[in-house]
Write a protein that binds this DNA or RNA. Structure first.
Lengths: 215, 215
DNA sequence: ACCTGAACACCGTTCAAGT
DNA sequence: ACCTGAACACCGTTCAAGT
């Protein structure tokens, strides 16, 4: 009955029908996480999440203030995964700033393409009326931090140029994020295979690198 | 009673309580257009749109197959406005490709910031389960076409470089779109005034231009 | 402390019926 | 052809009540 060995797999969490309890909070999040990718955030209902977790439709209110708070928790977890990947990209080539930036971009795109609904939830602006605790805000900020370090270090090394680190970071982040959203959206861009996705990312990133390289 | 003089104003359509009929289709779209910016696409209900248009809650089904089809119509109208702005940017400096590209980026950002919920509807991926007519797809494509011409002409003139026009267009579009979505989202970027928005756009675009300029 | 069931106000959608 | 009203299955949320 030990299913925990599967739990750490990074991509694609399959749905289960039964949930070990005593930790309903996490059971609900697991059920929601999995239903989200099937239905999208707009159609993700608290009642169905509760049903998949095997409890009544009012039980979730013991653990989340309301539907928006539950979506926020899912989004925060998503930013946690993003942060992890960005830090892995940073660690993958400690002495090569360009390779770090490229790895970060590739990982960002891959995570988004593998979890499109999570990404839309995190960045689609559905979290507007979230309680202003700033938890979500802070989680997003931590993903940003790794990119900041990569570029700041690169500038200190004389690899990257630009007037200030903040603008360069914003440029890089916006480019990768925009490419991501275009691929996820109704837009034309439509890479069929993971290899094509990487190739596309490389081409686009190359223009960015030429733009921010120190000269 | 002539209110049509206000109708052509490009930004911020105020809500009315009464609607001239005989053209319920457009009355519904106007009501929806206006409610959208107040509530967001997720909470925009057909019933409330109908109420604002002064008809029963089933009347909209005479004009739209369902809720998704109505949202699609709104998104298509949004792409129409975007297309217009892109073409104006193209016409604003026929002999200066860089100025055209910059004007397009500024207009894109301004439209998005003035109509955030429209932008989220158009690009947020809420149109997934839309009928595959391709109407929405085609409308998006037309906005894209102006940018394509700007960059293709710029490359023919030797102003822009890059291996192929498609990749350069994708890079430029992704950068501006990403900056837009970051500004609209929960993210840190938060320009207070229109002037700050323009300044931010200029800084980011400058890096892009350095990256795609012919050398 | 944690969960349930009934209840309320709201949805989207369908359908028979009115003019 | 165009609109209405009742009806159905679904929501989110609240609250008294159970253990």
């Amino acid at each position: 009955m030990n299913e925990d060995s599967q739990k750490s797999a990074n991509l694609q969490l399959p749905c289960r029908d039964s949930y070990h309890h005593g930790d309903l909070h996490n059971s609900l999040l697991e059920a929601a996480d999995c239903l989200l990718e099937q239905t999208g955030a707009a159609k993700l209902s608290l009642r169905e999440v509760a049903k998949h977790a095997g409890v009544s439709h009012t039980a979730p209110y013991r653990h989340f203030k309301n539907r928006a708070a539950m979506l926020e928790a899912i989004a925060i977890a998503g930013f946690g995964r993003l942060k992890l990947l960005m830090e892995q990209a940073e660690a993958s080539a400690p002495n090569d700033s360009e390779a770090q930036l490229l790895a970060a971009g590739l990982a960002y795109l891959q995570l988004a393409v593998n979890n499109p609904e999570h990404t839309r939830l995190m960045f689609g602006g559905m979290m507007k009326d979230v309680p202003e605790d700033g938890h979500l805000y802070a989680a997003a900020e931590e993903s940003y931090a790794a990119i900041y370090r990569i570029i700041d270090t690169g500038r200190a090394r004389g690899v990257f140029g630009g007037s200030d680190t903040d603008t360069v970071v914003l440029t890089a982040w916006a480019l990768v994020h925009g490419l991501t959203m275009l691929i996820l959206g109704t837009q034309k861009v439509n890479p069929a295979t993971p290899a094509e996705l990487d190739e596309l990312t490389l081409s686009v990133t190359e223009h960015l690198l030429q733009g921010i390289r120190a000269r």
